[in-house]
Design a binder for these strands. Sequence first.
DNA 1: CGATCCATGTAATCCGTTACATGATTAC
DNA 2: GTAATCATGTAACGGATTACATGGATCG
Lengths: 216, 216
Amino acid sequence: MSLRFGILGLLSEWEASGYDIKKEFDDLMSIFWHSHLSQIYPELNKLEKENLISSKLIAQEGKPDKKIYTITENGKEELMKWLLAPTESPKLKDVFLMQTFFMDNISVEEVVFKLKMYKKERTQRLDKMKQIMIERLKSIKERNVMKARILMSSVVLKRGYEQELQYIRWCEDTINLVESCKFLWEKSEGKRSTIIPFSDVEEMFMNYFSDMIEEY
Amino acid sequence: MSLRFGILGLLSEWEASGYDIKKEFDDLMSIFWHSHLSQIYPELNKLEKENLISSKLIAQEGKPDKKIYTITENGKEELMKWLLAPTESPKLKDVFLMQTFFMDNISVEEVVFKLKMYKKERTQRLDKMKQIMIERLKSIKERNVMKARILMSSVVLKRGYEQELQYIRWCEDTINLVESCKFLWEKSEGKRSTIIPFSDVEEMFMNYFSDMIEEY
DNA sequence: CGATCCATGTAATCCGTTACATGATTAC
DNA sequence: GTAATCATGTAACGGATTACATGGATCG
């Protein structure tokens, strides 16, 4: 239900083809959404039937023809209605966190390895975003222009950046905690994992969670 | 493709019914996944057909009968294979960030209102997680036990908490930035929004993004 | 000469959500 | 008496992913 508004939002600024829209989704917008061409094209056709966008066919030399879409007044109204509607409470899906939750089932070495790998993955995303931001800033400064759309896309970029940075820090902290709690993965009685008194790990445990439970 | 592993992961620790599993998904696990009973029940049947779990029917007094599922050796292997497999790069979906991206289409007052509302929403989630953590800690201390599963579920809880906290802080920072850049939403020439020289907002802009572009 | 880019789509499948269906017990 | 809890499902629909299909231009 959100893809259509992603498309309408984009077309509220520029006119574009399905192919162009896909590129935007793969670029900056990948921070909050993603979609395949095979979903974008049918959605564009639906939006046109509903009179929220209109199209014109452009012939090109040396390249296939393209269909350029423009938002209609109806479309702008729909977009604004959606922007003003209360946002549904977010339902997160994070496969890595799910894996982490169940990592008592693999060895400590493997846990640490997985955390390091994932940290790497996230670091690459961070670097990419930093790069995008630096280029944006350069271009903004050179052209010396600022407007609401640029501001809002930049604050979204910042949120994406922060998210990556914090995930990386969490990976680091968690690697440290897991390594200092290694012995929890030792198997006693053949198959079952160790259960030890909390007091043995209390200090490092409380240290890891200190900012979460300050006053407690 | 992840729901089945969420179920297998749960059953690697306790045996449970579909109804029990749903409750776990609604509780702590809601940080990284969610699912409906109408999806859980068919998935359980599929998993049983594939010999990854087995069931026994338990008759109860005053309550409907229930089917208790247990993980099989096959199931444990599948779970471990999944835990060790490289994690697919995360594809985020965040409707609120999408809305934010396009908020040049509504008035500043409405932008600030939306940000405040969303901050409230996230604050409620934060409080809930804090509560869960405090109760966990109390129970861990009282029973004086620690094991790998408890550790890993706690680190996941911390990630969830941090995520909420940081989102809230971003909302606050963004409200301030938007309010100090109000004039960008003023319409000039009837319909188009204002374009102003970047130098007019450079200081507050750079301040908001300072941690993202330190050395630049 | 193979890969990637440009450009638009259809079909099959899978995953997820909402609605429908049933029915006893318990708490307010 | 009305809502919530316990307990298990099916059916319909909608959204998202993967596979299939086409074909010229350009780059290495």
